[in-house]
Design a binder for these strands. Structure first.
Length: 213
DNA sequence: ATCCCGAGGG
DNA sequence: CCCTCTGGAT
């Protein structure tokens, strides 16, 4: 039983995921673009749940870019240690805050080309800020979940996140890009998990070349 | 290609 | 024990 091409399955995949996860959204806790930017930097190779554990204290102590830019790195390291990569992430946070202060009037820019000039901010993080904090047209956020799920679904065989993003942008209409990211992330966390995917409970198993059902 | 890093699940 | 978690910089 052969599967339809990706271009035919893509709209069905979107529809099914939307029905399965009607509440799909960014699960990082934040109250401003500044907070989302900091939380997203911390989310690298770390569950969002763990990020949410450390950000309340972090945001209370450093409520804005000014205070974070002048922070004692050792103090920031202690606050964010459970998220891993704490030395790199501290450098990114302080550098990011300094960049906002020096070059963007202490506020978070809303353009891709500006965002990626900030330390610790790559294309993935910038897409999160654009799409979620500013509700602006953004590319597809390709993180570890989106990449893995896309490959298992046979939407692409590529591993380079930038190329995967390009493929997904051709398969799905622009108005769906931000929601699609959240849907694929929810699905990757709950069902299409890295270790032992739960194909039996997957709403896409008849559309998936990797299904083991 | 490699490094950074802690914590939870299987 | 080994793998993985909303990556980015060198």
């Amino acid at each position: 039983m052969s599967l339809q091409p990706a271009s035919v399955r893509a709209p069905l995949i979107f529809k099914r995921l939307k029905r399965a996860y009607p509440d799909a959204h960014c699960e990082l806790d934040y109250a401003s673009p500044y907070q989302l930017l900091a939380a997203t930097i911390l989310s690298a190779q770390c569950t969002d749940k763990r990020v949410n554990l450390v950000t309340p204290a972090l945001f209370e102590r450093y409520p804005n870019a000014e205070s974070l830019a002048m922070a004692d790195p050792r103090e920031v390291e202690e606050l964010i240690k459970p998220t891993g990569f704490f030395r790199n992430k501290t450098k990114s946070l302080l550098g990011m805050a300094g960049g906002l202060l020096d070059r963007f009037g202490s506020s978070v820019p809303d353009r891709m080309e500006d965002l990626v000039t900030l330390p610790g901010v790559g294309r993935k993080t910038a897409n999160v800020i654009l799409g979620t904090a500013f509700d602006k047209p953004a590319g597809v956020v390709v993180d570890t979940h989106v990449g893995r799920v896309s490959r298992r679904l046979g939407l692409t065989r590529l591993s380079d996140p930038v190329k995967v993003e390009s493929v997904l942008m051709k398969l799905f209409p622009q108005k769906h890009w931000t929601l699609l990211s959240h849907l694929l992330i929810f699905h990757g966390r709950r069902v299409c998990v890295a270790r032992r995917p739960r194909c039996a409970e997957c709403v896409l198993n008849d559309l998936c070349p990797s299904s083991e059902v």
